[in-house]
Amino acid sequence: MATEEDMFLRAKDRSYRGLTEDEDKKWSGPFYFIQAADPQLGLMKAWKMGDCDGGGDEWDDEVRLTRQLVQAVNRLQPRPRFMVLCGDLVHAMPGVKAVFSGHYHRNAGASHDGLDMVVSSAVGCQLGTDPHGVRIVVVTGDRLVHRYHSLDQLSEKGVDEDLMNLLA
């Protein structure tokens, strides 16, 4: 069983060791993967209360089920080739200041009643003029600051200095 450190060290230089084109471009036989969807933290309590707009401030049931999922998948033999998690990750979160998403393949956003909707452009295929990249999100005790970084910028310069200073 790989350690957590080993698992995250496999992702390096815009590739994932153990799942690369060079190793996998020729068919080598059947395999399987796991597709999981909608952990939607907070929905179960909200649904039970009958208040899907205002409830959802507790995640205990969803966290228990998510842990059960991870434990079950880790025990499978043979191991799945990979696992993808799709759909709604969070239904409600106390104190939410921003919701981050993708799928639009360009940067966008809006704000309503103090809640920011932040859409980050893609690592992959761009539909607009935004560069391939990621959004850096810094959370402090009293602030949430985010900024989109191109992959080139992130590779060459790293995270903007003012964002790093917030972590000090």
Results as ranks from 00 to 15, higher is better:
26 K>Q: 04
38 D>E: 15
52 C>M: 13
57 D>L: 06
47 W>I: 06
58 E>S: 03
32 Y>W: 13
47 W>L: 05
41 L>Y: 12
36 A>I: 15
21 E>G: 11
40 Q>I: 04
54 G>S: 05
22 D>R: 06
62 E>S: 06
43 L>R: 09
56 G>H: 00
42 G>S: 01
61 D>E: 07
28 S>R: 13
63 V>T: 08
22 D>I: 15
53 D>N: 12
61 D>Y: 09
60 D>S: 07
30 P>Y: 06
59 W>E: 03
61 D>A: 11
25 K>F: 11
43 L>Y: 14
24 D>Y: 07
39 P>I: 00
44 M>V: 13
48 K>S: 05
28 S>A: 11
44 M>N: 03
46 A>I: 04
60 D>G: 09
23 E>K: 13
46 A>D: 01
25 K>V: 00
26 K>F: 06
59 W>Q: 02
42 G>C: 00
43 L>A: 08
58 E>C: 02
22 D>Q: 11
44 M>H: 07
34 I>A: 10
57 D>F: 08
49 M>F: 01
31 F>C: 05
36 A>V: 14
42 G>P: 03
49 M>A: 15
54 G>P: 04
37 A>T: 15
35 Q>V: 06
21 E>I: 04
36 A>G: 14
56 G>D: 00
57 D>N: 10
44 M>K: 04
33 F>K: 11
26 K>T: 08
26 K>W: 03
43 L>N: 01
29 G>N: 07
35 Q>N: 15
43 L>Q: 01
63 V>R: 06
21 E>P: 12
39 P>W: 06
52 C>P: 13
41 L>G: 03
60 D>I: 12
22 D>H: 02
34 I>M: 11
39 P>V: 10
26 K>R: 08
49 M>G: 09
62 E>D: 01
41 L>D: 07
59 W>K: 05
41 L>Q: 05
59 W>R: 01
52 C>I: 12
54 G>D: 11
37 A>L: 10
30 P>M: 05
53 D>Y: 13
63 V>S: 02
46 A>G: 06
55 G>D: 10
50 G>E: 09
57 D>I: 10
31 F>W: 08
60 D>A: 06
60 D>R: 02
27 W>F: 12
